[in-house]
Structure formats: C-alpha cells, structure tokens
C-alpha cells in the first residue's frame, strides 16, 4: 500500500518554516515600529457648570470656595500667589495653607471633599503654572508613595484678555 510504504521509509518530516518566520518577522517589525515609550497621563477633573448656580436650592452645607489668585509677569511666568487676601511666597506654601485648612494629622477631614477652590488667573499666565498650582492644592504623595487626594473640586474664574 502506498501509505504503509511511505511510513516505513519515513526519515524526518520537514516542516517548511519559511512562511511562519516571514509572518513572525512582519509582526515583530510592526510592533517594534508602533512602540512608543511614553509617560502615563492623568486627568484633573474641573467643575465648569454652564451658568451660575443651577436650579433648585443651593446646598446649605457647601462651603464658600477658597479663592486663589495667580498673577503673571509680562512673560507669563508666575509672579504672585494670593489666597484669601493673603500673599503667599510659593506653591509649597499654598499647599501647606490648604492642608492646614482641610487636614488634620490623620489626613483629609471630611469637609475636604466639599471644599472648592476657585482659581483666578491672569490671562497670559502659562498653563504649566496653573497645573502646578492645581497639583499643590488637590493632593500630595505620601511617604508610602500613595496619592492622597485633598481637594477635588476645582473651578476657574474667567478673566478678560488684557
């Protein structure tokens, strides 16, 4: 019989590897070229309701927002920080002030979640300083490398272009 005959003379079955290797190399090259090593990105949620207070009763437990004024010099660099009429020297001091308001030694107090910060920035202030200021008020990284959120309600006051 034909089949039996072939089985008897079997040496090694030669698989043709060429197409598989071709395909695998194609895949390899595709994934290599599409590789982008990028830092992960995260989000800041901001509260931007369309109009002034929505319909219905205002929430009586809502604390008035903390006003933070950021001024810029001519080049758009951060010049001054003011929090509730108080002049601050650095963003680090802003963080300390905010933490003193809403945190005790065990971490954020329950009111922290209700506290709102309102940034009032000069039109030409560079965006990166605003993100730094938002970083300063909205949380910190603790000793165990965890992110502790302090204030999550952030809004902006719009200023006209000068």
């Amino acid at each position: 019989m034909k089949r039996a005959g072939r089985d008897e003379t079997t040496q090694r079955i030669e698989l043709n590897m060429t197409p598989m290797i071709d395909v695998v190399f194609q895949l390899l090259i595709f994934f290599m070229l599409s590789l982008k090593l990028l830092a992960p990105e995260g989000d800041f949620h901001i509260r931007m309701p369309k109009a002034a207070p929505a319909e219905g009763q205002p929430d009586p437990t809502q604390l008035p927002p903390i006003k933070v004024r950021l001024t810029a010099d001519r080049n758009g660099n951060l010049r001054g920080i003011q929090m509730a009429e108080k002049q601050l020297r650095s963003l680090e001091q802003l963080r300390n002030e905010v933490l003193a308001l809403v945190c005790d030694e065990r971490g954020p107090k329950p009111e922290a979640a209700k506290t709102e910060i309102d940034f009032d920035c000069d039109y030409h202030l560079r965006y990166s300083y605003v993100v730094e200021a938002m970083t300063a008020v909205s949380g910190y990284v603790d000793k165990q490398d965890r992110i502790v959120k302090v204030i999550e309600k952030i809004k902006f006051t719009r200023r006209p272009k000068e």
Binding site: A39, P40, E41, G42, D43, F44, H45, I46, M48, R89, S90, L91, E92, Q93, R95, N96, V131, E132, M134, T135, A136, V141
Partner: peptide, 16 residues
C-alpha cells in the same frame, strides 16, 4: 471637562 497632564514626579521648590 478634564485637564490632562503627564504623570511625573516633580518636586515643588521648598518654601522660601
């Protein structure tokens, strides 16, 4: 709205 930023360690300047 969300504002997107790169997650990166950036140490704020110490006070003063």
């Amino acid at each position: 709205f969300v504002l997107r930023a790169k997650q990166e360690r950036k140490v704020l300047k110490p006070e003063g």
